[in-house]
Structure formats: C-alpha cells, structure tokens
Computed example of a mutant assay.
Amino acid sequence: MKTALLFGSSGLVGGHLLNQLIKDTNYSKIKLFVRSVPEISDPKVEIIKTNFNNLENHKEDIKGDDCFFCIGTTKKNSPVKDEYRRVELDIPREIAKIAKSNLVNSFIFVSALYANPKSSGEYIRFKGQVEEELKELNFPKLGIMRPSFLIGNRKEKRASETIGIFVFKLLSPLLLGPLKKMKPIHSETVAKAMIAVIQKDIQQTIFESNEIVEINKSHIVKKNLAELF
C-alpha cells in the first residue's frame, strides 16, 4: 500500500484528484498539504497545515511514494509580482527538490498548454521553467500534464476563461491534428489521468491535453477488462 502526497487539493483538478485517491485501493494514506484546514473526515487522509514560506520545516512530512502537485494561482489572486512568482515557480521546485531528496518515487505536475521556459508571458514561462527543473531531478517516474482550458465547477468565476472555453467548445470540431490539444478538457479527466500515468507503464513524460484524454480512455478500458476477468 502506498502513500500519496497532494498539494493543491482545494483547486479544480486537486479536488477531483483527492476524491480519486480516496477511492483508490492502491493508497492507504493521503497526505494533504494545505494552508487552511479543510472540512474532510476520512481515515486515509492526513492533513498537514503547511507554511509554504518555510517548506524546509516540512521536510519530514514530504515523504511517501507519489507526489501530486496541482497548486496554481492567478494575477488577480496574487497581484504582487513576487508572490505570483513564488506560487508558480519557487514553491513547486522547492517541493520537488525536497521530494527527490526524500526518495519519493513519482512526481506528477499540472503544467499548462504551451508551457515554454523562454516565453514572454510569465505564466507560460514559469510553468516551462518548472518543467525543465523537474526533468533535471530525474524522478523514477515524472508526469507533466499540460491541460487546455479546464472545465469544471470553480469556486470563483473567471470571465476570460469562461469565454475561452465557450469559444473553443464551438471550435472543437475544427481543432484537428496539432490543434487537438487546444480542446477544453474536464478537470476530472486530468485528475484520473494523473493517477493512470503512475499505474501504467508509459515511457513518456509530457502529456498534451488530447493525450491526457486518451490516457484516461485506455485506462478505463483496461480497468473494466480486468474487472471482467
């Protein structure tokens, strides 16, 4: 039985991921690293109130088998430039380094569509820089998920994202070939695929949005066949 480490359980993908991990019999413990204690009661869940400004204090807590990182922010929620950089760049790489030093086997990271360390846009650039640093750490299993527009029930509404999803839903039939990765994707699909990447023998590190969908489909088929036989 394994221990999962989950960062970002209150977010759109993280919330679904927590539910999937609770149901997954491969995991006997789920460590939640949170700023504020959530209202959740499950024997598998261990809540760790975390000081993200001093992660070294939690070095002994960041121990387990598989680490799932879903933390992210927006310019609206983190208007101070240094804080935005810390959430999107510094925190994920600090946690990854600690996890690696503690011999955590897998690190699954929610990145972004078109992540690029040389991009002029901070969001895309920071995600790309984290991706590069994760590769250098040489985890036995590394999964980098690059979802497109996320569909799901957000706690806060983002007007620009809502419009983007609506437009791309209309355009979806036309998004073929290399443009398939731009189709909106459900947040639950991303969460399920994050676990599937660990459980399947996939020799791949970066998963574009359309590939995330395919991983989830094939994993469901394989699981259903296993249950039949």
Rank of each mutant, 00 (worst) to 15 (best):
K2N: 13
T3R: 12
A4T: 02
G8N: 00
S9C: 08
S9R: 05
V13W: 03
G15N: 10
H16L: 03
L17I: 02
Q20D: 12
L21Q: 04
K23I: 00
T25P: 01
I30R: 09
R35Q: 13
R35N: 15
V37N: 11
P38W: 04
E39N: 14
I40P: 06
S41H: 13
P43T: 09
P43E: 12
K44P: 07
I47F: 07
I48Q: 12
N51A: 03
E56A: 10
C70K: 04
C70F: 01
G72M: 04
G72Q: 02
T73S: 11
D82P: 00
R85H: 14
R86M: 06
R93I: 15
R93A: 01
I95R: 00
S106Q: 10
V110L: 00
V110R: 00
S111V: 00
N116Y: 09
K118Y: 15
S119H: 14
S120W: 13
K127Q: 10
E132N: 15
L137K: 14
K141W: 12
G143Y: 09
G143P: 02
I144Y: 11
M145Y: 01
R146A: 05
R146V: 03
R146K: 15
S148V: 08
G152V: 01
G152K: 03
N153I: 11
K157S: 13
R158W: 04
R158V: 12
A159N: 05
F166H: 03
L171P: 06
L171E: 09
P173V: 06
L174G: 00
L175P: 07
P178I: 11
L179P: 04
K183Y: 10
T189M: 02
V190I: 09
A191N: 02
A196H: 03
Q199F: 05
K200F: 09
T205R: 08
I206P: 00
I206C: 02
V213S: 06
E214Y: 05
I220L: 11
V221W: 00
A226N: 04
L228I: 12
F229Y: 14
